[in-house]
Amino acid sequence: MATLKEIPSFQTLSRRARIIDLHSINKEITSFYSMESIAAIDSFMIDTCKYSTAIRRKAWK
């Protein structure tokens, strides 16, 4: 069994997330159901702006 000795950096997680073939994963998930259409929501966070910009906007409201 593989163990995780430390949490990977954000850059490592982002790089790994970009190489995942989401279309094939969605196809596998939807193959379990007989519905004509299925909507799925991903909980992956997307940064909308740089941290420094967010802090400035928060300070200036």
Rank of each mutant, 00 (worst) to 15 (best):
M1C: 15
A2M: 15
A2V: 14
A2F: 14
L4Y: 13
K5M: 14
I7G: 10
P8T: 07
S9N: 07
S9M: 04
F10C: 08
F10K: 12
F10M: 12
L13R: 04
L13T: 11
S14A: 05
R15D: 03
R16M: 07
I20S: 03
I20M: 12
D21W: 03
D21L: 07
D21M: 08
L22A: 11
S24E: 09
I25Q: 11
E28Q: 10
T30R: 05
S31M: 06
F32D: 09
Y33A: 10
Y33V: 13
Y33R: 06
S34V: 03
S34Y: 06
S34L: 08
A39P: 03
A39L: 08
I41E: 10
S43Y: 11
S43N: 05
S43E: 11
M45Y: 01
I46E: 01
D47Q: 05
T48R: 06
K50W: 00
K50P: 05
Y51F: 01
Y51T: 01
S52Y: 01
T53E: 03
T53A: 05
T53V: 03
T53W: 00
I55D: 00
I55V: 10
R56H: 04
R57Q: 01
R57A: 02
R57G: 00
K58Q: 03
A59R: 05
A59W: 04
K61C: 12
